[in-house]
Design a protein around this nucleic acid. Structure first.
Lengths: 135, 135
DNA sequence: TTACATGCAAACTGTTTGCAAATAT
DNA sequence: ATATTTGCAAACAGTTTGCATGTAA
């Protein structure tokens, strides 16, 4: 768990006012361990931790944190969006049956032979999802 | 455009009755060129082609075609699902600004150093999305 | 004739938004 | 004081479902 002062600073550097709700959410999200959350799971998490944050604010805050580069959205097929507190270069291991997500350090995995891009285009980033299942 | 007979056979091999609606959808989808469709775009496409298929049936049929291995769902962050008529091993180039999707042949792109999998797990497949933007 | 497929409209889920009240600066 | 943030509830988009009708085998 990070001291509140650091979290406050984190928000201020992102140009976000350190309100009670954003602090509560940031405390849950940025406790030092990498996390993958949905709006719903974060909402439950923060309220379980004693916070009092409406679901609408959770959505707003996820967007703001994403825009500020504090979170990364992960593209998983399906109905809900996932956000990753690990914003560094890495890939994902996705358990198709469980619906769970694990990080894979990008040191381990290498990609070569990226195609020529349409002119005027540049790579934003490369998402790799290793889909695994039982058997 | 494939002859109707082949399309009928395609459906029958998948254990799907070749109804008028499924034929109309399959004709649009499997015309020989690789496509990425959403339920909405396919619905428009089939009706523009003279078909008469309700949106609910488009959804049902997309699921059935996916289950039968005729289509693959592509994980793109966002509100709607995309289906790919190219079910072979390949990757995607995703234009973040336009929301458009291009295939990348997997011969071109190589991945090495896949992590050790949790025991009892096996790779279902690897999704790679090269996100590009202008600049 | 019988099991399966379709269309419609209603239901549902995740997400977004308008606005009045509350809060940070 | 003022601009931003919040919560609520209503709106919304995409998707799914129940059921009566239609169709393939």
């Amino acid at each position: 768990m990070q001291p509140d002062q650091e979290i406050t600073l984190l928000l201020q550097k992102a140009g976000l006012r350190p309100t009670a709700q954003r602090l509560a959410l940031a405390r849950v999200l940025f406790d030092g361990s990498d996390k993958h959350v949905s709006a719903e799971s974060l909402h439950e998490g923060v309220n379980a931790a004693g916070g009092r944050v409406s679901l609408a604010t959770v959505y707003n805050t996820l967007h703001q944190f994403k825009a500020a580069g504090l979170l990364r959205e992960v593209a998983i097929e399906g109905d809900r969006s996932f956000y990753d507190t690990n914003t560094s270069n890495h890939f994902h291991l996705y358990d198709v049956e469980e619906g769970t997500l694990l990080d894979v350090d990008h040191e381990q995995l290498k990609i070569s032979g990226l195609p020529a891009l349409p002119k005027g285009q540049v790579i934003d980033r490369v998402d790799v999802i290793v889909r695994v299942k039982r058997r």
